[in-house]
């Protein structure tokens, strides 16, 4: 069965498609969040090393995963938009950035709060925390660059360049921060200190990750719709849209 994917690369038909998909992803996210949190708080047993504090993991690890994954997705979409001049993929990249930045912030916040009872300080210059902080800077740079440019096409392309440069740099930054960290304090502080993770914990974490993923897709789709409306406000299909035409 051949689906004409190119049909959905036009903003007008994507708007409609997104409208159909948003409820599905929202419902999936809600259910999965509920299940994940239930497992995290009522099923998963107490960790013998960290006590109840480890329960932060159910939001911390998914947020950290999403922050990195979304940056790569943002760079991929922005790169496709730059290479093939497809407007929709650039809009997707722009829509991903705020959600990615939010997850980065959450990963930092929960990481710091987890660090206080475990390591005794809110912040350690651990390789992961430091790279996460730099990732937040990269997101902020991308968003402020796009915000500063009035012409949307230039904003798309300039954002794509900085996102791609960032994605090339992320492994270098991570590697250098890690090296710097071991040079300075040794590998005394490591997040992965508990290799044996109970199966229920792992299940809870995975469900929470998928929930975050579904949530991110739903929010990004809504934001893409908004961007499409903003950019195409003068076209005829927008004026014929349900909710616009009365």
């Amino acid at each position: 069965m051949a689906i004409n994917w190119f049909k959905y690369s036009s903003p007008a038909s994507f708007y409609v498609l997104a409208g159909k998909m948003i409820p599905l992803f929202s419902i999936a996210a809600t259910i999965l969040f509920a299940v994940g949190l239930y497992i995290g708080f009522f099923v998963a047993p107490t960790d013998f090393q960290q006590g109840e504090a480890y329960r932060i993991i159910f939001i911390h690890v998914p947020a950290a995963w999403m922050s990195m994954f979304l940056y790569v997705m943002m760079a991929v979409w922005a790169g496709i938009g730059l290479a093939f001049n497809t407007r929709l993929s650039s809009m997707m990249a722009t829509a991903i950035a705020p959600t990615g930045a939010m997850f980065t912030f959450l990963a930092l916040w929960t990481g710091a709060i987890w660090g206080k009872p475990m390591w005794g300080t809110w912040w350690v210059w651990d390789a992961r925390l430091t790279s996460e902080l730099i990732l937040l800077f990269l997101y902020i740079g991308f968003m402020s660059l796009q915000a500063a440019i009035d012409d949307p096409r230039r904003a798309d392309k300039a954002g794509a360049v900085i996102a791609l440069v960032g994605v090339v740099n992320i492994p270098i930054i991570y590697f250098s921060v890690k090296w710097w960290n071991t040079l300075h304090q040794g590998a005394t502080v490591s997040v992965t200190s508990s290799p044996k993770m109970a199966a229920t914990m792992l299940t809870g974490m995975l469900i929470m990750s998928i929930a975050c993923w579904m949530y991110a897709i739903a929010v990004i789709l809504i934001r893409t719709q908004t961007i499409i409306l903003e950019r195409e406000r003068h076209t005829s299909w927008v004026s014929e849209l349900k909710g616009v035409s009365s």
Partner: peptide
């Protein structure tokens, strides 16, 4: 288990 401030602090902000 005594970690209420930390656990709820992170979940409420999230």
């Amino acid at each position: 288990g005594g970690y209420g401030f930390y656990v709820w602090g992170s979940y409420i902000v999230s």
